[in-house]
Deep mutational scan, measured.
Amino acid sequence: MEVRTIKVFTTVDNINLHTQVVDMSMTYGQQFGPTYLDGADVTKIKPHNSHEGKTFYVLPNDDTLRVEAFEYYHTTDPSFLGRYMSALNHTKKWKYPQVNGLTSIKWADNNCYLATALLTLQQIELKFNPPALQDAYYRARAGEAANFCALILAYCNKTVGELGDVRETMSYLFQHANLDSCKRVLNVVCKTCGQQQTTLKGVEAVMYMGTLSYEQFKKGVQIPCTCGKQATKYLVQQESPFVMMSAPPAQYELKHGTFTCASEYTGNYQCGHYKHITSKETLYCIDGALLTKSSEYKGPITDVFYKENSYTTTIK
């Protein structure tokens, strides 16, 4: 009895394709271990004539594949690729409408935090270190965002349907971005203890939790000093293409032309909904596939993004 075979390709990165001759009487799992086709788990399936010449994702289970996976995804987590594939199996079914010149995501599976993050990423200057993220990001900007969303979920250790947080998501993504040249110098002034300067680099240099107003941050924000008295913390120097200011959701007025974009969060910790506000020729609110415009805006804002380049204080 002759062994019926077909020729397929296996890959971990969709760049390096490895030619395989597979036995049609055995499952993919018996031949390769966990195997995925377009995100779908085909591990328990036997090869079919229609699979001839198709590319299958496999887990990096030998040295060659491990090197290829690390170079593309910059992670050695053995569960990463499987999590990416199972997320992709959902995100490829989502709709990605162009809204006001940006790629958004039609609401499904509690994905409003991903839509808000995706919209924000198209408006701030950011370059990702893992080629996987950078490639998928370019495709997302062009309207094909399924891979990018699935990668975000995998890097953030999230599953489809789980509630997510924009600030946490951005923080994970910033860790995989090139923020080497970003720098922030802060000064804390206390009447009792004097003053202390701190220099922050990388992710810490672009994120701040405690106030939404970048102007206020430049002037000074009140913080408790270690001595128990009130101290003032203010920005001395900022070198970065953008800054992200966050605070627990509270009524906040966004003035046209003073910011790049913002995240609105309605609801409580267990259950809520994100919308995205962007400042173009007027203010726009993007909620999944829905767009509304207004000249002014007041609502429960939790993150505001500002364009920056270089700032030095005039406070002496």
Rank of each mutant, 00 (worst) to 15 (best):
P60Y: 06
D13H: 01
M209D: 07
Q197E: 12
K218E: 03
Y72N: 08
N147T: 13
Y57A: 08
Y72K: 10
E281M: 01
W107P: 04
N14Q: 13
K218W: 07
T232L: 13
N309S: 09
S104Q: 03
C271G: 13
S240H: 01
T27N: 15
G161Y: 05
L212S: 03
K298C: 12
S295F: 11
K46I: 13
T64H: 10
Y269C: 14
Y234G: 01
G29P: 04
P241D: 09
A154I: 05
V42P: 02
Y306T: 01
A205K: 03
D180S: 11
I15W: 08
N147F: 05
V99T: 09
C190E: 01
F9A: 14
S240P: 03
V188Y: 08
T5V: 14
Y96E: 08
L118E: 05
E281T: 06
R141I: 10
T120K: 03
D23A: 10
K93W: 07
H273F: 00
I152G: 03
T198N: 11
N16C: 08
N110G: 01
V236T: 06
D135N: 12
G202C: 03
W107Q: 05
T232F: 10
N16Q: 10
F259S: 01
K54D: 12
K7M: 13
R66L: 12
T76Q: 15
I315W: 14
A136E: 13
C112E: 04
K191I: 10
K191P: 15
V42D: 05
N111D: 00
I124F: 06
D13A: 06
F70S: 07
N89Y: 08
A177S: 09
N110K: 03
G210R: 02
M85G: 05
G194K: 07
S295Y: 15
Y306S: 00
P241L: 05
K316P: 14
K316I: 14
H90Q: 11
F217Y: 07
A146K: 07
V8S: 05
F217P: 01
F70V: 12
I223S: 12
W94K: 02
M26F: 08
A142V: 13
F305S: 03
A231D: 01
L291F: 10
P34M: 14
E52W: 11
Y172V: 08
D38N: 12
L133A: 01
T258V: 06
V12M: 11
T10G: 06
T19V: 13
I15R: 12
L235A: 02
S279Q: 05
V206P: 02
L37M: 13
L118M: 08
I223C: 15
R141W: 06
Q30E: 14
T313F: 14
A146I: 04
L186W: 13
T103D: 04
A205G: 01
N89P: 07
I124P: 03
V8Y: 04
I223G: 13
Q123L: 05
T292F: 12
Y28R: 04
F56A: 06
D135S: 09
K293L: 10
T302E: 01
M24F: 09
V206I: 08
C190R: 03
E264T: 07
Q195L: 14
L179A: 06
D13V: 05
A247P: 02
G39Y: 10
S295T: 13
C182Q: 00
F305N: 00
T35G: 05
G101P: 03
T120N: 12
P249W: 02
T313D: 13
S246N: 01
V67H: 14
A154T: 09
V185Y: 03
K127C: 09
I105P: 02
A142F: 11
T27Q: 15
L173C: 07
A262V: 00
V185S: 04
L114F: 06
T43L: 06
P224C: 10
S25Q: 13
I223V: 14
D287G: 00
L290Y: 15
S171K: 12
F80I: 05
K229T: 10
P224W: 09
Q251S: 12
A247R: 02
C227A: 00
H18P: 00
K298L: 15
F148D: 00
V12H: 06
T312V: 15
G228M: 01
C190H: 00
Q238H: 00
L59F: 15
A262E: 01
T35Q: 05
S213R: 04
E2A: 11
G202Y: 02
Y113I: 02
Y36E: 01
A150M: 02
G39M: 09
M24G: 09
E125Y: 06
T76C: 14
P300L: 13
W107D: 05
K218D: 00
S79F: 09
N129E: 15
K280E: 14
R4L: 13
T5W: 10
T226I: 11
T199W: 04
E168L: 10
Q195G: 08
K255Q: 13
Q222I: 10
G39K: 06
A150K: 02
